[in-house]
Write a protein that binds this DNA or RNA. Structure first.
Length: 891
RNA sequence: GGGUGGUUAGCUCAGUUGGUUUAGAGCGUCUGGUUUACACCCAGAAGGUCACAGGUUCGACUCCUGUACCACCCACCA
């Protein structure tokens, strides 16, 4: 006999190992089955998994297991990301702390440092692998990839070269986000803005007053900009020059009138510009072809142009510059309450300083990409695939967010001045430049020292992971041939669904669309499912830097089990919305898992009592000797299968999960198993349990597999490989369901009446018992019903106050029972109730009829919706007829 | 400045093109239960003007408009 409480700790690892050894996770590229593919978003190889990963794994595992059971060739490809800047920064900090080395880059040099990072990553990856297993993820480990694998590097270089050839990658002196702490550029999306209160100074600049929060950048300002329509400055003309006394003496300045750069309502309506250190100013300078001058060096110190301030860090220089301007009488006023946002590097956490630097960029506006027989820009392709519904985003509202992002997208700076990552495949020799897969022949070539933005390689993730076979067979193949000759790519691309958090829609999802459509001519995936972020009990974001806010999945799993954790993150959540996770919620699903476990213990016990081996139970036994309750159960199981399958197909995981949850607890356990205590049908019990365990397997794979082991029919294997249940029409029996529902209503009513009047359970209601007996469908369960209905006098019913008539009318739903109660209840009230019900039904009927005769509705609605409406109509009509009949009988 | 989402029971949240929902779940609270699967249980109860104000409709938690608060995203406020 199974133990009284389910023990996840003693079960999960054993089951996982069994699955893995069985080969069930492995996908076969040669299979004829329809493919279903998920590329696991590769966790950063910097440390531990957190709950965000746990949600991702739970969702993707459900998709994968469902697809596998549905008979698809399911591939879930796992991997890890080298996360260039994040990893390098973590390891550098670690070395600084543990080895007390101030500057590890200088101390170790490139080669040594890179190998130290690699070592760290190696360790971290194996931790991650075991954590992914703990969650029960059924991914294909034989295909595990890492974003720095040689085959991925090959794809990176190929795409770079191709883009360069198409003129999509260029090198240019452009303004970039410079992180002085990490000594590297970062992309626009890797920046966070932090609000800061800083003094906002207004200075006299010639005849003008200009405002700034950053006076230390103003040394080289020679242009003052204002709006052409600004009345205040209409006496000044564009191009007019004047002399202004400034920080280090007089400067020759020029007036510029510009419509786009300035908002006349802000501050004084005019400003000076610093093109080297400001995005807007840079763009203006670009348009007007103005000179730029660097004021701050790459370490965040002032340049010689600052004169006496040269060499000072900016924070130190700021008050001193203000002081000097004040002495000169140029400080007009200071606003101490000014709040502005400063840019901070997402990874390195350094304050970002815009700088002009020579970098590699991807041009997103050049229309040279072949797409659907047209020449489009990368931006246009990204828009097209969503607009044309080639890719569907769930929830849909994120499409808007996506388009908005693309509208604002600028050329993507892809070079990084860090060492950990894919090296840029460009070599220099004097003025010569070589862009290619392999280094050029001959001496004197040096490779570009920069690496690529980490999203450059992860943008290729859905397909660069599928070419290993072809590459191993012939490393000299071109990119097109690699794709063409790779069985995995041919079978498993495009992938089916990309599942990830909405927070990296831009970082990653958009980049994958860009890089994949360009690199392969295919979309990377058909559906994007975006999950919400996990929050703490009080709604805080879980952050790694604040351990008090984080819940570690590895602490939860031993306590509640992976199944409970999975359910608690899926059921009751909707895609794209954040949700809170806390102990009680997980405990609730642990209880459910345990409930299921005990239900199966009960089933096994019934088999034992009847001396039946649950493993030999088969479908044949489902047709003989069935009670109403049996038929009703089998019938509602069919509807359950239908609903759950539909829900899963439409990615409504929460709804489908909740449906089984409530079926198992509120119906199977609370009613059917209770009836079975009177008289049980082990074949039906086993069949129902088998179906339930199938439907729940994607959600809670461990406990279901463990239960399955006790009821596996002869000839079947592991549950993970079982075919998904299908609806058997012949088991559908609405009449039985209705009859059972009636019985349930009767019992419920008796119960609540007893409770309301405080009737002792030993007392009897003879008439009620008689009523219950008189239905032929009850004979099978008489013993049980008698026990439950083991209550006092029926006269109680007649004492019921008016507000209890809801209960009374439940008694009246069945004609037989109604007759036996006649004379004891207040018939006028009952009649009133029924008349009210009739009016409501008639109204409802009219509504449904109107809907069904509405041409627009018929045209727009799905056929199955129309069907259900028709069914509703029929049901309502039947019910109305019944009510009419009873009303007639009453009068 | 632009945009998105949220506002439903004490708490956390569902609610699928408006109608069998006189609003559902879990947790919590209260009452009563050791009935031979389960106290990680069973039977009940209390608790909601579905943020607010209008509108459309025979009918609105659901659609439209506006308002308030909360959260998030985007943007070149010097």
């Amino acid at each position: 006999m199974l133990p009284k409480a389910y023990d996840p700790q003693g079960t999960e690892d054993r089951i996982y190992q069994m699955w893995e050894e069985s080969g069930a996770f492995k996908a076969d590229a040669k299979s004829k089955k329809e493919p279903f593919v998920i590329s696991m978003p590769p966790p950063n190889a910097t440390g531990q998994l957190h709950l965000g990963h746990a949600v991702m794994l739970a969702l993707e595992d459900i998709f994968t297991r469902f697809a596998r059971m549905q008979g698809k060739e399911a591939l879930w490809l796992p991997g890890t990301d080298h996360a260039s800047i994040a990893t390098e920064s973590v390891v550098i900090k670690k070395i600084q702390k543990e080895e007390k080395i101030k500057d590890p880059r200088v101390h170790y040099g490139r080669e040594k440092l890179v190998s130290k990072i690699a070592e760290f990553v190696q360790e971290s990856r194996s931790v991650i692998r075991s954590q992914v297993r703990k969650m029960g993820a059924s991914c294909d480990w034989s295909r595990e990839r890492y974003t720095l694998d040689a085959s991925l590097n090959r794809c990176v270089n190929e795409v770079f070269k191709k883009m360069y050839g198409d003129g999509l990658i260029y090198r240019g002196q452009r303004i970039v986000n410079w992180d002085p702490r990490m000594q590297t550029t970062v992309s626009d999306d890797e920046i966070e803005y932090v609000e800061e209160k800083a003094p906002f100074y207004t200075f006299q600049y010639g005849p003008f007053q200009i405002s700034t929060a950053r006076p230390e950048t103003k040394f080289g300002d020679k242009y003052v900009v204002m709006h052409p329509d600004d009345e205040r400055y209409k006496q000044y003309k564009d191009g007019e020059t004047f002399t202004a006394e400034w920080i280090n003496g007089p400067v020759q300045a020029t007036v510029i009138k510009d419509r786009d750069a300035i908002d006349p309502a802000f501050g004084t309506g005019c400003m000076t510009i610093t093109p080297w250190h400001d995005m807007t100013d840079f763009e203006l300078a670009e348009r007007r072809n103005l000179p730029r001058e660097q004021i701050i060096d790459f370490n965040g110190r002032l340049m010689p142009v600052a004169g006496e301030f040269a060499g000072m860090p900016i924070e130190e220089a700021r008050p001193k510059v203000v002081e000097k301007l004040k002495e000169k009488g140029l400080l007009v006023k200071v606003d101490e309450n000014y709040v502005h946002r400063i840019a901070v590097s997402y990874r390195g956490k350094g304050v970002v300083e815009p700088q002009i630097k020579e970098q590699w960029f991807i041009d997103v506006n050049k229309p040279v990409v072949e797409w659907k027989k047209k020449k489009l820009s990368l931006k246009q392709v990204m828009q097209d695939v969503i607009r044309s519904k080639d890719i569907q985003i769930i929830p849909e509202r994120f499409e808007k967010v996506y388009f908005h992002w693309i509208d604002n997208l600028r050329d993507w700076c892809v070079s990084r001045q860090i060492w950990w990552g894919h090296r840029i495949p460009v070599w220099y020799k004097g003025e010569e430049k070589h862009v290619g897969i392999d280094p050029p022949q001959g001496l004197g070539w040096t490779q570009d020292p920069d690496t690529l933005d980490t999203w450059f390689s992860s943008g290729l993730w859905t397909w660069s992971t599928l070419i290993d076979h072809a590459l191993a067979a012939d490393p000299s193949l071109s990119l097109e041939d690699l794709l063409r000759k790779s069985p995995d790519f041919q079978k498993f691309h495009p992938t089916t669904v990309m599942e990830t958090g909405y927070d990296i829609l831009f970082f990653w999802v958009a980049r994958m669309i860009l890089m994949t459509t360009y690199g392969t001519g295919q979309i990377p995936f058909r559906h994007v499912y975006l999950h919400g972020l996990v929050r703490t009990r009080d709604g805080k974001k879980m952050s790694k830097s604040d351990p008090a806010t984080t819940i570690d999945p590895l602490e939860i799993i031993p306590k509640y089990g992976a199944d409970a954790l999975r359910l608690s993150m899926i059921v009751g959540q909707s895609p794209g919305n954040d949700f809170r996770l806390y102990d009680e919620k997980i405990a609730g699903y642990r209880n459910f898992v345990n409930k299921l476990w005990n239900a199966s213990r009960f089933v096994l016990l019934q088999c034992e009592k009847a001396d039946i081996d649950p493993k030999v139970v088969n479908g044949q036994q489902l047709t003989v000797n069935l009670s109403v309750a049996d038929r009703a159960l089998l019938s509602s199981l069919q509807r359950l299968i239908e609903d759950v399958t539909q829900g899963l197909k439409e990615y409504r995981l929460s709804e489908a999960g909740e449906r089984v949850y409530s079926f198992v607890w509120d119906y199977f356990c609370d009613w059917y198993l209770e009836f079975s205590k009177g008289e049980s049908n082990p074949a039906v019990l086993v069949h129902a349990l088998r179906t339930i365990v199938h439907l729940l397997h994607p959600y809670c794979p461990f406990v279901t597999e463990e239960i399955w082991a006790s009821i596996t029919p002869k000839g079947s294997g592991l549950l993970i490989r079982e075919p998904w249940p299908t609806v058997e029409k012949k088991l559908v029996d609405r009449e039985a369901e209705e009859q059972l529902q009636l019985l349930i209503d009767v019992i419920s009513s008796i119960r609540s009446l007893c409770a309301e009047y405080g009737v002792a359970p030993e007392a009897k209601i003879p008439a009620a018992v008689h009523a219950v007996k008189s239905g032929d469908f009850l004979t099978k369960h008489q013993a049980h019903v008698l026990r439950l209905a083991n209550v006092s006098e029926l006269s109680i019913v007649s004492k019921a106050p008016a507000h209890r008539h809801g209960v009374v009318s439940t008694f009246l739903k069945g004609v037989d029972i109604h007759l036996s109660l006649e004379g004891v209840v207040d018939l006028t009230k009952v009649k009133g109730n029924m008349e009210a019900e009739r009016v409501q039904l008639q109204k409802f009927l009219a509504g449904v009829q109107a809907k069904l005769s509405n041409e627009q509705f018929i045209a727009r609605a799905k056929p199955e919706v129309v069907e259900t409406e028709k069914q509703k109509l029929k049901d309502a009509e039947a019910k109305l007829a019944k009510i009419e009949e009873r009303l007639k009988a009453l009068s």
